[in-house]
Design a binder for these strands. Structure first.
Length: 887
RNA sequence: GCGGACGUGGCGAAACCGGUAGACGCAGCAGACUUAAAAUCUGCUUCCUCAAAAGGGAGUGUGGGUUCGAGUCCCGCCGUCCGCACCA
């Protein structure tokens, strides 16, 4: 055995061995308990970052651990390969996005392989492959047939200079990222997927996802946002009716009333105004005849779209001069346009009840609108709404001044009012969802084409299944202005499948979230060319463990849950929920160092190039650049990112220390769910540990190979009676095994598993006996240490296992069971407390009864000192743990 | 504003069911090896106090509470982070 640990050679050999053996190719095996372990697939941005390393190592530890536990493990990998960054790179380099993307995939595949992940590469897929995205198109057409996909007009960000649609992240402070032009809102036709058809099921089923973090379920529930309330219509007064009649251009009769949705129908008699959104049809109609109002509406629309600003903005508004009538009293109620009403929620109009809604209160105070109390609290906290808002005003209570409903409690009043409205055809109870349908059209090139054809004669026609896939031409180079697909004649010009006449192909592509909404299903039958999935999907799905970043808590995970249900309802899969267990790993942080340039901008320096300066409390206060020796400011910790220049290149890490060190560090510095602070010193510490482990095995086996204590064929030395030191080491060995099994298998706290192995390793170092029995005991301890560590640092453990005298590779080794006998103790230590404070310890046989344990505790000399002269009032005994004496 | 998570040494953290606070590591200090340095190995390392040592006291953001016993449970406050954000 080589004396020195050489990571590169060890890792190369192990990876070669796994590849030659096809060790991680997964096959369906009837009867075997399957374990589908999946990490969220990467976007091929060019290089791996530390977040990837962390994500994939977590998945790999679990995959390898479950394999050794006897499960039939599938761990696949693929590429989320469509998307905007490829177009940006194409603009910058004047090369097609396809070339850039595929080069990145090749490079990053090599990086992933160098990490030694137990991946079944035979199932690899990339979403930009026609073999993959044809099934996006096929599914889209099935959904369209069932009314789950439809066309409607939608609002997009429009860059007037580039004449192109911008993604939200391309709009910076209201301006286009490339041109700096003010972005406009434009209405264009788009395709939507009817995710709202599944809103109730997606919400209810969250309760069944016991393997998901509570906070992700909460975030999804909030996102879906179910509200029960009443939809009702306020009849237009004469002024509004005549205006609408004048401005109505279509044949359809103008609506007879203003529709609103409310969760507080019990406050209906407190309505003193109505408010509509700036984009509400009534606002448009009113604005057409009122220049001041039109200016205000325009201002509302252009107002800041920053969400935080929106929420705290003043409640501004302007009267339309129009009125509606109260459904019960017939009273005239003025209608305002208000900046706080959202066109996209409910009916885009609200009834204003200043007495019982904080926003309406604020608005009414600003516009001198009367405030009318109609709900009194059950407690007598107040009688009437006062000058200042108080949250009690929004509480439910008992109705007052509410006509026939006066005296009813809120809940009963809501029922009664809804009933009365319904009898008159003016309203009804209904559920309002915050969730909206999923707009999937993107006016972009590098995505999956939407398989539709526009024909002058036949209208919108689906591409027939046998003509799928609609292949995206891969040679185009976007220039930032418009969608190059729309200018590609070979793509656009086609024949109508219905009439055979000339027609135009749809040039919008699909949101890349479509691609990632079902890739986990495709892995199960990645080589199936005749269907989207086959029966193997029933074997592997659901995913037993899904691992990824919390940033996908809502969109990706919700879309995937929706898509799986859509496929279920097409009879393609049997499951409803794709991910049985979800693990969200924390971010990777590093220090941020910057410098203010004379023009006010900040220049960020990589932490590797900065020497930190510490104050007397050893806190970072500043630093000096190692490049130019000039001072640098400290900005604290932040997520590794390009913009803050605080990333660490995993490639350099692997080259310098090896993949095992990188994996070990990523797993040891924090529990996987928490943020991980980068520390170069911490990496070196793990590297040092692997060297010591290697040396320790080397020193042990250089005296000849022995069978481990207790193993079959271990001979006399493997059965001999043990002295205290040997028994102690055996006990720790098996305690460590129990702890590691629990920490990896149940708690997923890999950091504490590693700590336990290091403790065992330290104990092996302190165990100095060298006779045959001692060597058998040490062999056992080293074997368990290596097995315990092998899911985390697989290469070095692969080599060490071989050096410890085993032919069978460690990946095929069954995870060992702890030896109950080794865990037994002749004496256990009980702590003795006096009044809850630790005062002594006594050694007693396990199972010592209370009386004897308390007697032994009282006999302890230190304890004696603390109870001297006092009466023991009470004694508590926790068997084999402690005695507490109360004096 | 609403919802959620969290707050422990110089630092990352551990303490899993209410029972020895600080495992494991980083940094630091001392020693061994060395002509020397690096590397490596050994030991120490929460704070305060008295120190020759033994010992004693305090201590998990903060103030209360429950309990024989609280980092852990309950209530109030302060702070940090995350998500949603005028959702009618």
């Amino acid at each position: 055995m080589q004396e020195r640990y050489e990571a590169a050679a060890v890792e190369r050999a192990a990876q070669q061995y796994w590849q030659q053996q096809g060790a991680f190719v997964a096959r369906e095996r009837a009867g075997a308990s399957k374990y589908y372990c999946l990490s969220m697939f990467p976007y091929p941005s060019g290089r791996l970052h530390m977040g990837h390393v962390r994500n994939y190592t977590i998945g790999d530890v679990l995959a390898r651990f479950m394999r050794m536990q006897g499960h039939n493990v599938l761990q696949p990998m693929g590429w989320d390969a469509f998307g905007l960054p490829a177009e940006n790179a194409a603009i910058a380099n004047n090369r097609p996005p396809a070339a850039w993307t595929r080069e990145n995939i090749d490079y990053m595949r090599g990086q992933l392989r160098s990490l030694g992940l137990a991946i079944d590469w035979s199932r690899e897929l990339a979403t930009c492959d026609p073999d993959y995205y044809r099934w996006n198109q096929w599914m889209f057409l099935r959904m369209r047939e069932r009314g789950l996909a439809y066309k409607a007009s939608g609002v997009v960000n429009w860059d007037p200079l580039d004449q192109t649609v911008l993604a939200n992240e391309q709009v910076i402070d209201g301006r286009g990222w490339r041109t700096g032009a003010l972005v406009q809102k434009r209405e264009i036709p788009m395709y939507y997927l009817r995710i709202t058809a599944y809103a109730q099921e997606l919400l209810s089923a969250l309760e069944t996802l016991s393997g998901w973090p509570e906070r992700v379920r909460l975030m999804q529930a909030n996102w879906i946002g179910r509200s029960e309330g009443v939809e009702l219509s306020f009849d237009y007064a004469a002024d509004a009716r005549s205006l609408l009649a004048r401005s109505c251009q279509t044949d359809a009769p103008p609506p007879s009333g203003l529709k609103v949705f409310t969760t507080r129908a019990d406050t209906l008699f407190g309505v003193t105004f109505m408010a509509v959104a700036a984009d509400h049809p009534l606002a448009h109609a009113a604005g057409a005849h009122d220049a001041r109002l039109a200016a205000f509406i325009d201002e509302c629309r252009r107002g800041s779209t920053m969400e935080a600003d929106v929420a705290t903005a003043e409640k501004r508004g302007m009267a339309t001069g129009l009125h509606v009538r109260h459904p019960f009293t017939g009273e005239l109620i003025p209608v305002f346009v208000a900046n706080y009403v959202l066109m996209t929620y409910g009916e885009g109009a609200v009834m204003g009840v200043p007495a019982h809604d904080e926003r309406d209160f604020e608005f009414a105070r600003r516009h001198d609108i009367p405030i009318r109390t109609v709900v009194l609290p059950v407690s007598d906290a107040y009688q009437r709404v006062g000058q200042e808002w108080h949250s009690d005003y929004a509480e439910y209570g008992v109705l007052t001044d509410s006509g026939p409903f006066t005296g009813l409690p809120s809940a009963a009043a809501i029922d009664a009012i809804a009933g009365a409205l319904e009898r008159e055809g003016r309203g009804r109870k209904r559920v309002q969802w915050r969730l909206r349908d999923w707009g999937i059209s993107r006016q972009r090139y590098w995505g999956c084409p939407i398989p539709l054809i526009h024909c002058e004669r036949c209208g919108e026609v689906a591409v027939p299944d046998e003509q799928l896939p609609v292949v995206l031409p891969e040679s185009l180079v976007p220039d930032g202005a418009g969608n190059p697909l729309a200018r590609c004649a070979e793509f656009v010009n086609c024949r109508c499948p219905t009439c055979g006449g000339p027609a135009r192909r749809e040039t919008d592509t699909m949101d890349t979230f479509v691609d990632s909404s079902w890739y986990f299903l495709r892995y199960a039958s990645a080589d199936q060319s005749a269907a989207v999935v086959d029966e193997r999907v029933d074997y592997w799905l659901p995913v037993d463990q899904y691992i990824g970043g919390i940033e996908h808590a809502i969109l990706h995970l919700l879309y995937s849950r929706f898509w799986t249900r859509a496929m279920r309802d097409l009879g393609l899969v049997k499951i409803s929920e794709p991910f049985a267990n979800l693990f969200t790993q924390g971010m990777v942080l590093n220090h941020i160092w910057c410098r203010r340039l004379p023009d006010g901008r900040r220049q960020y320096l990589n932490p590797a190039d900065v020497e930190p300066q510490l104050d007397q409390n050893k806190q970072r206060v500043g630093g000096v650049s190692l490049v130019d020796h000039q001072p640098v400011e400290y900005e604290g910790l932040g997520t590794m990112s390009k913009s803050k220049n605080n990333g660490v290149d995993p490639q350099a890490l692997v080259e310098q220390y090896g993949a095992d060190t990188a994996r070990l560090f990523a797993m040891s510095a924090a529990p996987p769910e928490q943020t991980l602070e980068w520390s170069e010193e911490g990496v070196v510490g793990q590297y040092r540990f692997l060297h010591r482990l290697w040396k320790s095995v080397h020193d042990h086996v250089s005296a000849g190979v022995v069978a481990r204590y207790g193993a079959d064929g271990s001979g006399d030395a493997g059965r001999a009676a043990l002295g205290d030191a040997a028994r102690g080491l055996r006990r720790l060995t098996h305690q460590t095994l129990v702890k590691v099994t629990h920490d990896i298998g149940r708690r997923r706290t890999f950091n504490t598993a590693i700590a336990a192995v290091r403790e065992l390793f330290n104990a092996i170092g302190h165990y100095t006996e060298t006779d045959a029995v001692a060597r058998a005991v040490r062999q056992e301890a080293l074997e368990i240490a290596v097995i315990s560590l092998s899911p985390i640092a697989p290469h070095v453990c692969h080599a060490l296992w071989h050096e410890l005298g085993h032919e069978r590779p460690i990946i095929d080794e069954p995870w060992p069971q702890a030896d109950a006998q080794a865990l037994e103790q002749a004496l256990v230590e009980l702590i003795v407390q006096v009044n809850g404070k630790l005062r002594g310890r006594v050694q007693l046989p396990p199972g010592t009864p209370s009386n004897a344990a308390i007697q032994a505790a009282l006999a302890d000399p230190t304890v004696q000192r603390f109870i001297a002269g006092k009466a023991v009032r009470k004694s508590i005994h926790v068997p084999d743990k402690l005695v507490n004496l109360v004096v």
